[in-house]
Every structure is written in structure tokens, then in C-alpha cells.
Write a protein that binds this DNA or RNA. Structure first.
Lengths: 198, 198, 198, 198
DNA sequence: AATGAATGAGGCTTCATTCAT
DNA sequence: GATGAATGAAGCCTCATTCAT
């Protein structure tokens, strides 16, 4: 009994996922070779193939794991009426979900050309598309659609890159961008900006 | 006026750039091999090396050519005072410049992981960064910065992807998103949206 | 009598042989991996290694089992005088034996290059060689040897492939080819064929 | 002028084919790796890929080159009337053609399982099938078909293996087997064999 | 201005096999 | 009687690049 309470049956699979994720994020999917992953882990390439059928499969597993929150969010939104309030809530939750699922989106973001013709690429971009579709649901006028688009772009891409220099914490920026997006969404201004103090 | 003395020398260099651009856009930088470019053009790989030192060099030349408008925009903005009006104008011009320089930004966008450690990658992303820096110039408050960020994200990323379903023409969408961004920038809402009759 | 004490112990070994045989026949020895065999059977590769020392060992066991009739035939022929009648009978019996042992000969036939340097390869081809040797036994003249050779080739290779289009049943073809071979053997023609009315 | 009169443009392609043929014959197609071929030739694997698109392509080129005589024979036979005399002549020519094209047939013969699902495999076996089809052309009776089959088997497979021990030269054996096959074909006995001198 | 030939490095994947449990 | 995990060797192939001509 004692010792590790959890099953003693090798945590290698998870270690592979973790290491692969790190490398995919830092060096890119295509540029990360299985050799690197294996070496970093201290196992052989063949060991990776014991746990995953292909390189793509590794990313796929990661995508499934990290993408779950967003998937659940989509499932939730699909059962709500396409009202303004739903969309505001969706945007809020999406912003939050992104914060934790960031790594995969980062990968999708930076490796689009490569992932485009991989099944896992669709898995990933389908999620983004779904959110966008839900935000645009209903019979909106053109101007309104553009505000929705802006809001989505702000929340989604605001999650990456240190946009606007490094002011505040990551979390503070996220919250603030969400506010701006919400304001844009409803057509109301966010906290005003002095007309031109410069 | 006759032909410019320099011209009529061989358009191969330009044909290479054009073909390479097409392929980089449609298949990605890394996934496009020099063999493909050469085959598509009906020349040998070695011919490419006669005109360009490396693969990266091809992209670099493309970047220089297509990026000129944005470079000029940056140069212009750097000589303006960092006023609100400058930024509004900068945003307008950037939106317009993007429309024509789109292909390279598309490439940067979809191949970030690969370009990250290439000199040409910096060339490309420096331009984006410069715009962002100029937009954030001056002593702005936090909230204001976030609005700037949202505006930039909207204009920049709105240029890619058919965000918000295919309503209107590309040009109409661009103009509309620019309006939304400008409104966000000044803290005023764009044309309002009904508060939610549902 | 009850069940033989040895029996009822686990039929896995036999199931492995059967599955392996099927796959070796349909996909070839080299191209059939232990993984495939294991998967088809619903066990692990390691299980195969519990029952057999190596991949070759599996084929070896199959060869032993299915080759027994031919081995017995060889043993029988080795105790007969090398008369014409013996050879005629040998040919008849070989034709019959082949019909039932076909699968392994099929494997030998189609995987010669691979089996050549395996012990089991010799086991298999030795049987063929032995038959041939026995058919050629004695002090035959050159012309006669060639007729023997033709007869053996006809019976042996006639057992594979749908030679001569699909006329008659497999069994009918076998019997007919045996007749032709026997006729060739004794230098007498089989039922005549019109001299060419065209 | 002087030096080699032939184009000085690298004979590597042909050297590859020659070396590959040797190895495919002696070690088998599957068991011959591109590394081996390259090493034997003193070039890199990549050099092979400069001259041939794939491993299969190498065999394909060999097949095309060595198979030409048989292809021509088939073309010839297809324009003859399907008379007995045509078939006798076809058998004669096939026997001769085989003598020179032997290596590829040897490869087909010994690597069937591997070649089965390769395009080049069909190329190869189609030739054999075509000969067989032509030999069986017309409205033959069952018995006759079986004699045809025996004749074809004798000539085709007699070309391989030292059937009947090493008596006479290869050429003598070929001629003799052809005679036996021709005799079988027409239903007449070949030079008789004493009824049983043993 | 361009080609033909070749290279070295490295990519992903599969295989037969082993061994502790 | 069998499994889960792992390995080492090797396979085919592709790529960016070079260089003599």
C-alpha cells in the first residue's frame, strides 16, 4: 500500500503530453521533432510510439485534454437562446476559458499553415469557429455583426501577445480587454478617454 | 521613354518571388519546398540559388517589397506628434495598408513558429510591433491602453479570416471594422445596437 | 477415453498458428508483423512470445504441422525402389499431398527471398528438393530427366495460380494436370489435340 | 573529342539499376535496403533519390528495361491468329526471351508477397498472365487446356531453379525442356523413355 | 543565366524482441 | 498464461544547400 496511492502503471503517457506541449509551444509543432521530445524525456523515440500512434496523435490528445473547457462552453452556449445576454456571458466565459486553454490556442495560432491539413488542425480551429458562430447567431444587422467581430477578435487575440506593452498583470489585462469587448458589443463606450491630452 | 536601362534583363527573379509568395500563402513557408517552387516555375532548384542566397532570402525579398507601404506608414507616424488624431489617422492608414500587404502578414500570421527564429521573421513582426508601439505612444492610462489594444487587434486581425460570416464585401467589412475600432479608440460607441428585445 | 490428459490446456498456441498462417498466406511472411497477428487475435505481442521463441518459430511450427504428409511421403518413397512405377505413384501422392499442404507451399513460393536465409526456409525447400531428387533417382538419360522435370514442374506449380483460366473445379484441374504430367513422364501423350485445323 | 565518346553526363542512373538488380536478385527486394544499394555504389541514399522517385521506381525501371523483349513478344502474339502453330512459336520465343529476362522474373518469383501490392508487381505479373492468356486463346477443350498449362509451366518455371540436378548446360536444359513442352502441347510424346529399366 | 548531380542531416515510423510483474 | 512498457536498429524519404560546368 503506502507509496504512491495512484496506480503505479507508468505516468509516461502524461509526461509525453506535458513535454510535447512545452516544446510545441516554445519551438512550434513542425519544428519539434520526436527525437527532441524523446530526448528531453529520457526515453526512446519508439517509446513515444508505444503511447501514441503518430506525432499528430500526441497533439490530438493534448488538444482533447486542454480543449475540454471550451468544448463544454460551446455545448452550453448551444442550448441557450441567442440573446444579447447569452452572448455577453459567452464572451465572459470564453475569455476565462481561454486563459487556461491558452497553450493549445497558441499552438494553433502559430502553426496554422502546418496544422491546416491535419485532422487535429480542424479539431482546433473548429472550436474557434464555433465560438464565433455562436456569437454571430441570430439575425443581426451588418453594423452589429462588425461589433461582434471586434469583440471576439479583442478577446481571442488579446489573450496572446503582450499587446500594449506590459502594463498590469496578465489577469488585469484580460479583464480590461473583456470590458472593452463587452462595451463594444453593446455599442456603449467603455470608460472614456480624454479627447486628446497630448 | 524606351525601356528603363535596368529592365529587360530577366524577369526570373520576380517570377520566383511571385510563385514563392503564392505557395508560401497557400501551403505555408516551411511546407513549401524549393523543389515545389522550382517545379511550378519550370526551372531547377539551382536556378533559385542563382537569384537568391537562401530560401529565407526569397521571403525576405518579398517582405521588403510588399512591406514598403507599412514601412512608409511607420516612418510617417514616427514624425507625427503622438496625438489622438495622429493615432486615428494611423489606424486608418494601417487598415488600408494591410489590405494591400495582406499576403505577407498572412504568412507571418500562419507561420509564426517557423519564422520566429529567422531574421525575416523579425523584419515582419517588427513592423507589427512598431504600429502597436506607435498606437500606444504617450502617457496613456491603463483603460485607455486597453481600448487602443482592442482597436489595433480589431483592425489587424480583422484583416484575416472571414470573421462574422460572409456578410458584405471584403472592403465593406474592412471599412466597418475600422469604424468600430475608431469608435472604441475614442471611447464612443459605434452605431448602437438594440439593448436586447428577446 | 475421456479427454487426453495433455489437452484442454489452452488452445492459444494453436490459435496463434492458425491466425499467423492466414496472415502469412494473405499478406506474406515479412509483411505480416507480430503486432498484426496479436491484434487479430486480441492478445498482446508479448503473449506470442510466451508461446513461441521468435517469429520464425511460429512459421516453423506451422511448417512442421502442415508438412507432415509430405514428410511421410518422402519417407515412404525413400524405401521404395527407384522404379518408374514408384515415381508414378510418388507423383500421384505428391499431387494429393500438395492439395492439402498448399498453404505452406504457397508461403514458401511467395516469400522465397525472405525465407532463403531462415532455417525454416530450408526446412520448407528441402521438402521440395527431396521430392525432386526422388523423382530423378536412378541412372536416367538426359532426355528422360527433362521429362521428369517437366512432370514435377507441372504438378508442383500447377497447384498454385489459376493456370489456364478458371475451367473446371480446383480438384478437376489437379487431376487433369496430374494426368498430363504422368503422360509426359512415360513419354506418351495425353489425349490428343487436333493438329491445327486453322 | 577524345576520351569517352558517349555523353559524359553521369552513368549513375544505369549503375544504380545494375547494382539494384544484382541485390534484388541475390537478397530479395524487401530485404535490400536503399542504404545497401547506395553503399555498394559509393554514393549517398539521397543520390538514389535524385535519379529515382522511390525504391519501387528503381525496380520499375529495371522491369521496363529487361521486360521489353517479352513485351514485344506479347505484342507480336496479339497480332497472330490463335492457331496451334502460333502457340508453338510463341512458346519457343518465350523460352528464348525468358533466358535473357530471367533476373526480373526471378525477382517477381521470389518476392511475390511483397510485390503483390506494388504497381510494379502488376507490371511484372501482367506479362506472365498475358503469355498464359495468349497460350490459352481460342476455344480449347478442357484436356487441351491442361496440356497448354503444363507446357507453359514447364517452360516458365523450368527457367528457374536447377531442376533435375545439374545435367548439361543451362542452354541445353532450356532447349530440352522446350522440346518436352512442345511435345506435351501437341499431345505427341517427346523422345521415349524406356518403360522401366530399373 | 541556369543545370545536373550530389550530399549530409534529419524527419517520421515500424519492427522483432525483452523483461519485470 | 499473459501484459505493459520499453528498446535499438533500421527503413524510406525529403529538404536546403553546394559546385562544377
Amino acid at each position: 500500500m503506502g507509496s504512491t496511492p495512484q496506480a503505479r502503471r507508468s505516468d509516461t503517457r502524461e509526461r509525453i503530453q506535458k513535454t510535447a506541449l512545452d516544446l510545441f509551444v516554445s519551438r512550434g509543432y513542425e519544428k519539434t521533432s520526436l527525437r527532441e521530445i524523446a530526448e528531453e524525456l529520457g526515453v526512446t523515440k519508439a517509446a513515444l510510439y508505444y503511447h501514441f500512434k503518430t506525432k499528430e496523435d500526441i497533439l490530438s490528445a493534448i488538444s482533447r485534454d486542454l480543449g475540454r473547457p471550451v468544448d463544454e462552453l460551446i455545448a452550453w452556449a448551444e442550448e441557450q437562446p441567442p440573446t444579447m445576454e447569452t452572448k455577453r456571458e459567452l464572451l465572459r466565459r470564453y475569455s476565462a476559458a481561454l486563459a487556461s486553454a491558452m497553450p493549445i490556442y497558441h499552438i494553433l495560432q502559430e502553426n496554422q499553415a502546418t496544422l491546416r491539413d491535419l485532422a487535429v488542425g480542424r479539431e482546433l480551429s473548429d472550436r474557434v469557429t464555433a465560438i464565433s458562430r455562436l456569437m454571430h447567431a441570430g439575425d443581426l444587422e451588418f453594423d452589429c455583426r462588425m461589433r461582434v467581430a471586434s469583440a471576439v477578435l479583442t478577446v481571442h487575440f488579446g489573450a496572446f501577445a503582450p499587446c500594449g506593452a506590459a502594463v498590469g498583470t496578465v489577469e488585469q489585462r484580460r479583464a480590461a480587454l473583456l470590458d472593452v469587448a463587452l462595451a463594444t458589443l453593446s455599442g456603449a463606450p467603455a470608460p472614456t478617454m480624454s479627447p486628446d491630452p497630448a
